[in-house]
Write a protein that binds this DNA or RNA. Sequence first.
DNA 1: TTGTAAGCGTTATCAT
DNA 2: ATGATAACGCTTACAA
Lengths: 366, 366
Amino acid sequence: MPKPAPTATPSRPCPPGAAKPAAPAKARATIADVALAAQVSKATVSRYLNGRTDILTPDMAKRVQEAIASLQYRPSPMAQALKHGRTRLIGLAVADVTNPFSVAVLQGAEKACQAAGYLLVLFNLGNEAGRERDAMHALSAYQLDGMILNRVDTSAQLWQDAQLHGKPIVLVDRFQEGLDADFVTVDNPGVVQIAMDHLQQQGFDEVLLVTEPIADVSSRTARQQAFARYIQSQAPTMQGSVWESTADGASALQQHLQHWQQQAQQAGRRPAVLAGNAVASLRVATAVHALGWVPGRELGIIGVDETDWAALVGPGLSTVAQPTDALGQAAATCLIERIQGLQSPARTVELPGTIIVRGSTKSPSN
Amino acid sequence: MPKPAPTATPSRPCPPGAAKPAAPAKARATIADVALAAQVSKATVSRYLNGRTDILTPDMAKRVQEAIASLQYRPSPMAQALKHGRTRLIGLAVADVTNPFSVAVLQGAEKACQAAGYLLVLFNLGNEAGRERDAMHALSAYQLDGMILNRVDTSAQLWQDAQLHGKPIVLVDRFQEGLDADFVTVDNPGVVQIAMDHLQQQGFDEVLLVTEPIADVSSRTARQQAFARYIQSQAPTMQGSVWESTADGASALQQHLQHWQQQAQQAGRRPAVLAGNAVASLRVATAVHALGWVPGRELGIIGVDETDWAALVGPGLSTVAQPTDALGQAAATCLIERIQGLQSPARTVELPGTIIVRGSTKSPSN
DNA sequence: TTGTAAGCGTTATCAT
DNA sequence: ATGATAACGCTTACAA
């Protein structure tokens, strides 16, 4: 006599009087339950679910539909996956959730996935190469339908695993040589061009590119190369140099900045820093702050990636914003197309950046 | 004659002599493949996998182990889930990924999950109540083993769904009245106490609490109540007031700040803002910036939640940091314990915050 | 100690 | 048009 259920008490705020402490939580309804309730076969229910309503007697359809409603039935994606290998799960592996760029892309991807009825599974690689392996394992183990990938270590080649099981992959922001996958990225040369044009226009002629370690990260390489090329071919009077900044290199960066700025001024040049991404921007801003400088006064600053706080430091930090939302959406869309069978050769989607001018690059003459 | 199995060729690396050009990406090895290769039954393989090595002949164990290795076999979590209902998947639903607090908690949770062999599935609710439903549906549909929840809308009660299927839930940061679930949170009264003590010590006696709309969010309520109580009982000479700030209320906030500050000064009081979380801090900092003020000069500022940029604005923003990583880990740990069958009554884990003093609350007399 | 077989919730191939 | 029935990859009584 587990539950007499007196009709007099409809609202039961969890009465503590039960003998068995926890009711075993009745299981989800299955297709068999529906079939039983509707007095039809499982096959019929399945057909109804898969939209084959054209070959169903209205009567049957109605019965099934009612049974489904009354039982609150929802098909089990796991069981479906077991059958035909598709889970409607998409993996998104980001190098570092801490980077606002990753989060912004995530949001874009989320939209597209949601719209297409896919669920997004996040893998935060935390910049550790090892976790990338785990993510790829999960891709095949959990039968994810595909993966959006922001690679941590472009040198390693663990593609075998993934490719072998025929799961499509889309690369974001970081390209992988020799992998047959769509690639979604901001137009890196364009971004650098925009930033440099602006700096030049504002009269800066000594530019330091501060970037996270370039290593094998394609986006960093692309920006660095565009930077070098720009100075060489479009700004012969400019001086350019590069500083690779690491997490524990705060004081080194600060010292270098001080030196470099001093030299520039002594040479009668106007110095500006171009930060390669949001992380670099934060480091530069921190160093500048520590030196007691004001962005736009001792030096110009412009950073790739718009951030929450860009407007708040000093007179505001100029930035070149990436179209993060569009990048995320494009990546997800590409992937979903592949999942749905698209067979065209690997595509590259390249989206433009947008400059946001603030006080840190105002020419002092103004 | 499915398998003559010539003992001479134990290892067959997929000879490329097939007629069909593009290999359809050979499927993952299954337990049957392993059984076949090892010349044992599927049951034996299963037993090996489940650690029942004690009842296995060393010989068998070795054969199985070799077959697994050579086939690169990994059991399918989906199939396992179908069998016994556990997926080793944990859901984490955060109100808003854009909030650094959420990301920080995510990282903590990730650690604990990874350590225990669980995969974390992220649901970004984007502050939309509707998406919470979706997340709960996914919880049962994908048979996630449990869910860590940072509720968006505490007024709605969609608990039926989840509870019914007996999946454990852990609440983070936001409490849900009448739900039998563990709850992990920072010590909100303590956080407010720390902040207010500091303000009082620095000679501020007119404090404005700027918070996101309190509505039904327990953490905001808790902070607000602690704020009111503090002033009433521990700082009789202090004046306190509250401002609820919304995303589109930037100019309203700015105006109010201006008014309020003016009044305070005219009354000979020293004004300070206590921002209720990182989002509120950003809004306050933005308004202050727009007014041309400097934190610590026209007013004191202290915010709950440490952020990347706190050190950078003006002389630095004082904050009370939440132990985000520990919160995430605690939440995941609690959940995993529940998943593994722990039956104790709902627990509350309350972790202390830590003050970080910067220029925005330095008393001008110093 | 090991193998056989049933079943988890679906879908798909047959008959009917 | 509908219903048995056999998979999908795995675990687990139950037999041997």
